[in-house]
Nucleic acid binder design. Sequence first.
DNA 1: AAACAGTTTAGATATATATCTAATTATAAG
DNA 2: CTTATAATTAGATATATATCTAAACTGTTT
Lengths: 198, 198
Amino acid sequence: MQLDKIVKYHKALADPTRLRMMLILSQGEMHGHALAEKLNLSQPTVTHHASKLREAALIKERRDKNTVYFKLNPEFITASAEASLQFIFAKGVEGMEEQSSDNSLKETVLRNFFSKDGRLRQIPAQYKKKLIALQCIVEKLEPGVIYTEKEINEFIKPFHDDFATIRREFIMHQFMYRENDKYELNPQEMWTHWEYVK
Amino acid sequence: MQLDKIVKYHKALADPTRLRMMLILSQGEMHGHALAEKLNLSQPTVTHHASKLREAALIKERRDKNTVYFKLNPEFITASAEASLQFIFAKGVEGMEEQSSDNSLKETVLRNFFSKDGRLRQIPAQYKKKLIALQCIVEKLEPGVIYTEKEINEFIKPFHDDFATIRREFIMHQFMYRENDKYELNPQEMWTHWEYVK
DNA sequence: AAACAGTTTAGATATATATCTAATTATAAG
DNA sequence: CTTATAATTAGATATATATCTAAACTGTTT
């Protein structure tokens, strides 16, 4: 998983001192002592910040005799910014794998909580089973259709008397979304409750 | 100064939980309760992270009855990443202003520390004055020329007997840089010791 | 080999922050 | 007006981190 790398990149730049270091180094390479002087910091502090930047590969170093010169690693700086954006906007490419993994549990729920006529005997208390029961009902709705609250209630009633609770759970667990008392199915990707985010 | 904003942007994304929030929201808007559930966190924690993201303008919110829906603010996300890069790579556009501000101090140093024949009587102990004295000497070198250590020594001797110390100070204060025993002047922008980084 | 200069490591301290529970606020429903 | 639900605020705690001083290390010079 690359999440850690992206965090590391942002952490590296999430500090005013390190940003000023980067600014200074954008003018050319510089050694530790001079950096400490320009920033009014002790040398150990500069070492500390330099390690953070180096761990994120944002700077490179060269050594001449005793003194270590730092300079920017521009390719990596831009690459990291790019990667961060890609990460955030990567539409759920993953998360589809486990889709059908829990079939046995689904059958259990269908057998134990629904009667032959399709009514929900009772709302499962156990979290995962409740989600499955809700999903079994909600997937009988039409994707793309906009429902009124009344219509949703009428739809639920044949399954269970407490339509208010179930309607609320639909929203709560992201099966549907609501705006100005209009209800609509969310895309199925949003129903993925089994931790697809690693 | 925009440094704070850039720090805020990176801080906002410098946390695995918030990054996962962004990932989830990239699939569509979601309200606090559902986010808490997906992330296995308490609702106050989600509020906490949402504020951080909101302060950096990375997410937007809408409210329907009691529930607040979060969604990404994609323009700002990319704009911030762009601004961060621009900040880092902004070559010293600033810093040129105060160039000639301290002329009086320079005259003082010239009068008190240099004799009529141009020799440096003694190395000033006071930091700013020392820098001025060094600069007065170093600027007599040719930009672009690569010197050997021997040549540097010979150059300094007419100014001061302790050429070793002065040569070291040239490096230390970034007037010159050294690689494999070759010495070269740094560009004048790097001599700017009077805190151009705000 | 002794001294030195630049860097790094170790250890201490203070501030920041991620997370929780409990209490409060805000909006809606009955 | 009372209750209920979602969100926020307050307060507590534990971890992370920015900074310093002092000590150790490493390569250079004498």
